[in-house]
C-alpha cells in the first residue's frame, strides 16, 4: 500500500488548500500524525466564514412574531452591511388562494427588525403571479436608529425600480420610462444610486426626500459617456 501518511508536507499543504470547509480540515487533522503536523504547518488559524446572505435564498429561519399564523415561508431577497431584506409569504384567509406578502429588514447581529409595509402596496400577490424581485439593496445611515433607504429591482415593466423609505413611502418611475425599464443591475455608491442597463450604459440617480420624507429622484444622468467626454481641467 502506498505510504499516504508519508506524503511530503508541501504536497499535503496543496491538498489542504483544496479543502475549503473547516470541518473537512478538522477531520483531515485527526487522520494521522503526519497529516496533523501538516495542518498545523499550513493552516494558520481556522478560516473565518464570511457572513453572506445570497439572493434569492432558501427559506430563512426566523422567529415568527406572536400571533402570526400560516407562514408559508420567509426568503432572503438581499443583504447589505448586516441587514437582510426578507420576504415572507403567509396564506390569506381560509377559502381564498391569494397569499399575503410582507417585507422587512432584519439585522441578525442586533436582532432589529424594520417593517417595509410600504412595499406591500406594489409587491402584492398579483405582482408575484408573473414577476419577481431581482435584487434588493439597502443603504443605511451610520447611526444605529438611522434611516434606511431600500432599492428594489424587479422584472415588472411598470415597477422596474422601487425606492422605499420605511415609515415614509415609496417612489417608482413613471410607467415605461427609460432608463429604468432597461435596468439589469443597481448599486448605491456614495450619495447616489447607480443603474446599469441592458446596453451596458451607466446612469447616476440623484436621490432626495420630499417634505414628507418620501424618497424622490431629482435627476438621472448618464454616467458612462458624459464623464468620459468631460473636458479635462
Amino acid at each position: 500500500m502506498a505510504p499516504w501518511s508519508d506524503l511530503p508536507s508541501d504536497l499535503l499543504g496543496l491538498v489542504i488548500a483544496r479543502l475549503p470547509f473547516p470541518a473537512d480540515r478538522a477531520r483531515f487533522r485527526a487522520v494521522c500524525s503526519a497529516w496533523h503536523s501538516a495542518v498545523r504547518l499550513h493552516v494558520a488559524s481556522p478560516p473565518q466564514l464570511p457572513w453572506i446572505a445570497l439572493s434569492p435564498g432558501p427559506p430563512v429561519a426566523m422567529p415568527t412574531h406572536a400571533g402570526e399564523k400560516n407562514v408559508v415561508n420567509t426568503v432572503c431577497v438581499g443583504s447589505t452591511d448586516g441587514w437582510r431584506a426578507l420576504h415572507r409569504t403567509t396564506a390569506a384567509a381560509a377559502g381564498t388562494k391569494t397569499k399575503r406578502h410582507t417585507f422587512f429588514l432584519h439585522n441578525p447581529f442586533t436582532a432589529t427588525t424594520v417593517p417595509l409595509a410600504e412595499l406591500e402596496d406594489v409587491l402584492d400577490d398579483a405582482f408575484f403571479e408573473w414577476n419577481e424581485v431581482c435584487k434588493v439593496i439597502i443603504r443605511s445611515s451610520s447611526c444605529p436608529d438611522g434611516d434606511h433607504l431600500v432599492a428594489v429591482m424587479t422584472n415588472h415593466y411598470n415597477f422596474p425600480l422601487i425606492l422605499c423609505q420605511p415609515g415614509k413611502g415609496t417612489w417608482t418611475p413613471d410607467s415605461c420610462t427609460m432608463p429604468f425599464v432597461r435596468v439589469i443591475d443597481i448599486a448605491f455608491f456614495k450619495d447616489k444610486l447607480y443603474l446599469i442597463t441592458t446596453a451596458e450604459d451607466l446612469f447616476a440617480v440623484d436621490l432626495a426626500a420630499d417634505k414628507h420624507g418620501k424618497p424622490t429622484v431629482t435627476n438621472v444622468a448618464s454616467a458612462s459617456t458624459d464623464n468620459r467626454e468631460a473636458p479635462m481641467t
Binding site: M1, A2, W4, S5, L11, L14, V15, R18, L19, F21, D24, R27, F28, A30, V31, C32, S33, W35
Partner: peptide, 25 residues
C-alpha cells in the same frame, strides 16, 4: 490533488484512513 481532496471531503478520520490505507498513529 483535487481527487485526493474529493476523497477526503465529508469523511470521518476513520473513513479517510480506510480509503488511503493509513495506520492510526
Amino acid at each position: 490533488t483535487q481527487c485526493i481532496a474529493d476523497t477526503i471531503k465529508g469523511k470521518t478520520p476513520e473513513e479517510i484512513r480506510t480509503a488511503f490505507g493509513i495506520e492510526y498513529d
